[in-house]
Nucleic acid binder design. Structure first.
Length: 593
RNA sequence: GCCCCAGUGGAGCAGUCUGGAGUGCUCAUCUCCCUGUCAAGGAGAAGGUCGCCGGUUCAAGUCCGGUCUGGGGCGCCA
């Protein structure tokens, strides 16, 4: 139907007769002569309808409206000096229309496609097919394709096999809430959609398939966030006869290769932080390394304090930490109160602010500080005159970290301390490995040890001795990748030794029978010579969103869902009729709408 | 489950604090004018359940309570 693509036309085609298809992006009617910008997936080109060239085409052009789908036949002409449009890739040329055909007409769209104004996201999702006409969305999806195809080329070259795993599988007891699918042929039973192909990929290793990867949908029925959708895409991979360094190596090379191919950027080697160090310095295991404002431990500064809240926290074995906000020491009372409220919203009992001035400190607690404490506080935080120190104290170290980590990123955004994204700048991409996670985490509510990663996570050799005596000291062979404050990937070397696996289950308070009941097929498989193995699973949606400079993953998913897991386009989830329910042996207990 | 922000012609906003006629702006739509614009321009027109329910008031887009939807976050997410 067409001979050329709109966005690819240039001076080289001057004089050629071309056939173009696309949508009417904009129309400028001068009465005597009419211009349109014709749009296809490659871009825009100006088409001129001049009655001196074609009376008939000029007449049809009067009828054209935005988003009409048309075909134009005409001659490519270089534009006269002064009429070149430098804002358009094809601005040096235009197409003089000889023939035009309306392929299909369009109603006035619910919002404009030109991208000049933000549109309510609900509306964009309801009319996603129109939203996806916008250049920004097409660029996002093209980048997604470039990244995914670069990933496949990389793993192909490394000798990995892409193998599919079932979507209808067994519900696993731990982890996220499952999406369930009722069985018709087995009344009262359910499949679950996979939260990840974790167990299947481990079985591939038992099978000797050695190096597996898959770009695969995963499903988790949990509440949504900017970086979380109920269905999302993982790059799942697993390798045999490897230890931690092998997985880190291949994964890091993969990311470098992808950034090179998709963005043309040579990434620096990834930073490496232990979990402990990350928490200490940034209060989180997904630190944004693009700016400073590292947390300071102030327990020593206030070791002998008489300030009641601090004294109580220290005596209870808690923590006092601070974060220094550059040049905000003179912040007004209203803003400071708002910060206190933010800290409380994040879970803190309160927030102490300290404005650092040349000779003095400005703080509600200043009168309770000793001279030594004032000096030590300045020194410990390395604060300069004019800075603002925010101090959080709590008997739970985790609360202190969470609150300060939250304030750190929010304030960095608010005060523009994060460099504006330049996607071609290698420094814009602060990848980091987070390693040496603790294996266990104390669950206060249930009063037991829980796993942090999953129950098959390997253990760093000499820490296994604490499995029974002091589980908190056991370090796992798990690792995360973080990029600019987002968790991008998570993985581990797995336990392949049955005895070790049993010790771990016991430490978790899971009996042998219970373990067998829950994970029978994996444990059975491990009777038959499982190789040492491990892997990782980076999130594709997050990778693409970050690479595209987007702040939520919906922008890089063609048909995403809203925060309540609703799809405004299809109306899913929807009611089904009684007959459908009966077939799968279900009856709804939901109130009739 | 909880906290915060938003909801006003088709789209994006202002108006809400401090109640007084659906007031205004930009874009789109429709009619007319216009042969070099490029987010064209000019003249005119049409288009409204101020998310929904209730309350206060002589009077509510505006105040109060509730609720729904969207977004951000906490919890949750091995």
């Amino acid at each position: 139907m067409r001979s050329h693509l709109c966005g690819r036309l240039g001076a080289e085609q001057a004089g050629e007769r071309v056939e173009l298809c696309g949508w009417v992006h904009t129309r400028r009617d001068h009465g005597g002569v009419t211009f349109i910008d014709l749009r296809d997936t490659t871009g825009l080109v100006q088409v001129v309808f001049n009655p001196e060239i074609s009376e008939r085409s000029h007449e049809v052009a009067q009828d054209l409206r935005g988003e009409f789908c048309i075909k134009v036949v005409g001659e490519v002409r270089t534009r006269k000096a002064g009429t070149v449009n430098p804002n358009l890739g094809t601005g040096e040329v235009e197409v003089a229309a000889q023939e035009v055909e309306i392929l299909s007409r369009a109603e006035t769209p619910p919002f404009q496609v030109d991208g000049h104004q933000e549109v309510d996201e609900m509306l964009r999702l309801r009319y996603r097919y129109i939203d996806l006409r916008r250049e920004e969305m097409q660029e996002n999806l093209k980048l997604r394709h470039a990244i995914v195809s670069a990933i496949r080329r990389f793993f192909d070259a490394e000798g990995f096999l892409e193998i599919e795993t079932p979507m209808l599988t067994r519900s696993t007891p731990e982890g996220a809430r499952d999406y369930l699918v009722p069985s018709r042929s087995h009344p009262g039973t359910f499949y679950a959609l996979p939260q990840s192909p974790q167990l299947f990929k481990q079985l591939f290793m038992v099978s000797g398939l050695d190096r597996y990867y898959q770009i695969v949908k995963c499903f988790r029925d949990e509440d949504l966030r900017a970086d979380r959708q109920p269905e999302f895409t993982q790059l799942d991979l697993e390798m045999s006869f490897v230890d931690v360094e092998d997985v880190l190596d291949v994964t890091e090379r993969m990311f470098k290769s992808v950034w090179k191919e998709a963005l043309g950027v040579e990434l620096a080697d990834f930073t490496r932080l232990t979990y402990g160090e990350s928490l200490q310095r940034f209060g989180t295991d997904k630190p944004d390394l693009r700016f400073g404002m590292e947390l300071t431990d102030l327990s020593d500064v206030f070791a002998a304090t008489e300030v009641k809240v601090f004294r109580g926290v220290l005596d209870a074995g808690g923590a006092i930490k601070g974060v220094t906000v550059p040049r905000q020491g003179a912040l007004g009372r209203k803003d400071l109160d708002a910060l206190v409220d933010q800290a409380k919203a994040l879970g803190a009992g309160g927030l102490v602010w300290v404005g650092v001035e040349a000779e003095t400190l400005r703080s509600p607690l200043d009168k309770f500080f000793t001279a030594d404490e004032r000096v030590a506080l300045r020194k410990a935080t390395d604060a300069s005159d004019g800075d603002l120190i925010l101090v959080v104290a709590d008997k739970r170290v985790s609360v202190v970290n969470k609150v300060l980590a939250g304030l750190r990123t929010r304030l960095a955004e608010r005060f523009d301390l994060i460099p504006k994204l330049d996607r071609s700048d290698p420094d814009a991409w602060r990848f980091a490995w987070i390693v040496d996670f603790p294996w266990f985490e104390w669950n206060d509510d249930e009063e037991r040890w829980d796993f942090i990663h999953h129950p098959f996570t390997g253990i760093v050799g000499d820490t296994a001795q604490y499995l029974e005596s002091d589980p908190g000291k056991v370090i796992s062979k798990s690792y995360d990748i973080t990029l600019n404050g987002w968790e991008l990937a998570s993985g581990s070397i797995r336990i392949h030794d049955r005895e070790m696996q049993q010790r771990v289950f016991r430490a978790l308070g899971i009996s042998d029978e219970e373990a067998q009941e829950k994970f029978s097929f994996l444990l059975d498989a491990f009777k038959y010579g499982p190789p040492p193995h491990g892997g990782i699973a980076p999130g594709i949606d997050r990778i693409v969103a970050l690479a595209a400079g987007q702040t939520n993953i919906r922008e890089v998913i063609a048909f995403p869902k809203t925060q309540t897991a609703f799809d405004p386009l299809t109306g899913a989830p929807s009611q089904v009729d009684e007959a459908q329910l009966k077939v799968v042996h279900l009856r709804s207990t939901a109130p009739k709408p």
